[in-house]
Design a protein around this nucleic acid. Structure first.
Lengths: 136, 136
DNA sequence: ATATATATATGTAAAATGCACATAGGTTAT
DNA sequence: ATAACCTATGTGCATTTTACATATATATAT
């Protein structure tokens, strides 16, 4: 029943488990919004800011595509900035909807952090009481 | 007032922003492993336990497919249990590789929690000092 | 017999992600 | 001037993840 696959994929204790990451999906969006809430910016610069949040070697394509998508959703706005030397920049501004989105996300994060605490409590061997599962 | 732009996608502060969730990807995998580390179990039962971790109205398909995938990766093993009334159950057991995976994931989660703390510090208006970005 | 609860699984599509490649303006070195 | 390089923005494509609907099967209750 269970011996057809010799699990050649993961047998050593020190195996690397490619792709194992606890980072949430769409993490890039709130990071961008948070940056833009402080000051207007553009893709190339936002890439560096995003790196500080754990996006190492961020791929430009992913960032720029995300920005366009965010604009379509109305949480940021953009306009070309050509009044200087060098290639034109698409400057982004956070909208009111963007601020709301950020607030919404932050709330979700807070809730999720409780869940993570529960996870850790179980992981480290202190099981939850039946009645307080994962809270609210 | 500033009512010139109705931004039809997200106008109210209380807008719902469907899909906004701070949940990490593949969250289901560590939750299953943690459950199986406590006692062997099967899909139908694991669904309920997963619900306690914030998977409301979990779709069976997602869970069962995840379990088969996990078995292919060698982090769980299964065998049919037919020695009782009712439909047969596929009982799952965590493997050594599964335990390693769980440890690996927990480490990643811990690291991610620090990043989240940094995010919150910025969000609530206490910016980081230049020298301590997101690192440790 | 048929409805219900248990139990597992597939098919398909949408969304997210990663990686490679394309385009273009401007600056500096040769 | 032209090649090389840095800045800056983007598209294409394949893979992975996730969601949603549907299918199958066993046993029990009515």
């Amino acid at each position: 029943m269970n011996n057809e696959e010799p699990e050649r994929e993961a047998r050593g204790k020190e195996r690397e488990f490619r792709g194992v990451e606890a980072r949430p999906r769409n993490w890039l969006v709130p990071v961008i919004l948070l940056s833009l809430r402080e000051w207007n910016s553009y893709g190339y610069e936002l890439m560096e800011r995003a790196s500080a949040f754990g996006f190492e070697a961020m791929n430009p394509g992913t960032l720029y595509r995300t920005l366009r998508q965010m604009e379509k959703e109305g949480i940021v706005e953009s306009s070309w900035e050509t009044s200087r030397g060098g290639p034109a920049r698409r400057m982004y501004t956070i909208t009111d909807a963007g601020r709301s989105y950020l607030d919404f996300w932050a709330q979700s994060l807070e809730q999720y952090q409780h869940t993570m605490d529960n996870f850790f409590r179980l992981y480290t061997g202190r099981p939850l009481k039946d009645k307080e599962e994962s809270g609210e």
